[in-house]
Design a protein around this nucleic acid. Sequence first.
DNA 1: CGCAATATTGACCACTCTCAATGAGGGTGG
DNA 2: CCACCCTCATTGAGAGTGGTCAATATTGCG
Lengths: 252, 252
Amino acid sequence: MPNNKIVSIDSKKVRCEVCSVASLVLPEFLGGKELELFESVVTHCCPVHRGDYIFQAGDTFRSIFAIKSGSIKTYTRKKAGNNQITGFYLPGELIGLDAIEEGVHHSSAKALETAAVCEIPFDHLEELSSTIPGLQRQMYRLLSKEIFQETNLLTLLGSKNAEERLAGFLLDFSNRFIKRGFSATDFYLSMSRNDIGSYLGLAVETVSRLFTRFHDDGLLHVERKHVQLKDMDRLKLLFNGGDNQSDQKQHG
Amino acid sequence: MPNNKIVSIDSKKVRCEVCSVASLVLPEFLGGKELELFESVVTHCCPVHRGDYIFQAGDTFRSIFAIKSGSIKTYTRKKAGNNQITGFYLPGELIGLDAIEEGVHHSSAKALETAAVCEIPFDHLEELSSTIPGLQRQMYRLLSKEIFQETNLLTLLGSKNAEERLAGFLLDFSNRFIKRGFSATDFYLSMSRNDIGSYLGLAVETVSRLFTRFHDDGLLHVERKHVQLKDMDRLKLLFNGGDNQSDQKQHG
DNA sequence: CGCAATATTGACCACTCTCAATGAGGGTGG
DNA sequence: CCACCCTCATTGAGAGTGGTCAATATTGCG
């Protein structure tokens, strides 16, 4: 597995492993004592390997999971033999939030590479969040953030063409990497082209062709999983498509 | 506005107006006294008319809103002059949940018809939910439900073709109407074809053509906003597309 | 009653999917 | 250490779904 890791993350893994989950997931609002309390409810914090499940569709919901290092994909079953990727998650992000309501996981979560994932039993978290006001607030914010991000993805799928989608995908990762202190323009994508295609609602071949085109156009340098964004401005322009200009393609 | 109301809802509006928001939005877990407390934080409960905004993108987030009657659409700005519809909301549903995290609305909410909408100041709700454990739990569930539903929509947009999308759209509304005690097979769609198209990531013309085709195929009877589903089984079959059968179109 | 907005329908074509072949990596076993 | 296999990625050619443009209802509103 040497090549398909997000190396920039792996290089910091040691540091991540020792720092607290709480400070990673809940960067604000919690004091030292509260952080400790939060840490106390985190039961497991085990490393997983590429292909390992964190949970599967159909599992009873008991915990949410915080990612400390590595990356995770979530997906739902689609048609025979195929999966619909619903998200890629990086350190500091939570998975399993969609299962709170029904008490059952409807999606599966699988490690894209070696990763450290912390289990947070939800009933403990609930109890704790009713005693620590700041934690409750943070929980609301985290859930809201997930909704907001999915709304953005909906907009992407509902109104953008193939190249706008891939540009948006890359810019999203760029933003998320930079927030974690990694390079905004030089990173490894731990997921396969197939996963990217499914996530963006495109065929694998289209994704592959677009990477080639972007490469040839000088927008980026790509070699398998390794991506270096070369022209962020044009990439952003591409993402925004016909915006600003008064052309109104699609759903006019 | 005689024709573009969801009449089956309107016919029950009087009843809805007098029953509590809480019992509509939070059907479980709250006792009589707690319901009263919850009601006390609901400041406004004003009627809105077709085209009225509940909130707009850019507004400071202060409240979430519960719909008591009528229907609401939410959307984000897309390209010049166009909107990307992100959701349609019916009585008992909450809007504005995506704005908690950043404290700013990134989407707008507009009434599709005359509707009753209750404002619930979020800081009050937060306070209250830390004193009533059942309320906190319900809030988590409601937020989680929104995430789950958006994930479903993502799957729809990411992996279904045009007719599967429209079938899914109709089945979704059918389910939501039946949960509210209305007919599962006979209802009015309060939104325009344009809105449906935007929501489903399709051109208006495609939506129109599909309605006609479904009508001609005997799947449903449609006359402008009035829809009567005639063959739920075939509609479900259509929605599931190539599932069950071992054909694996798209992202093979 | 006429204008504006919304729907419907048709013709055309482009974007993206499908199918198919080839190439490149990575892991396993001899 | 190399051969082999299997998965994943790339590239090409052709086809089809669905978008765009345009014209014509139909409805609603001032």
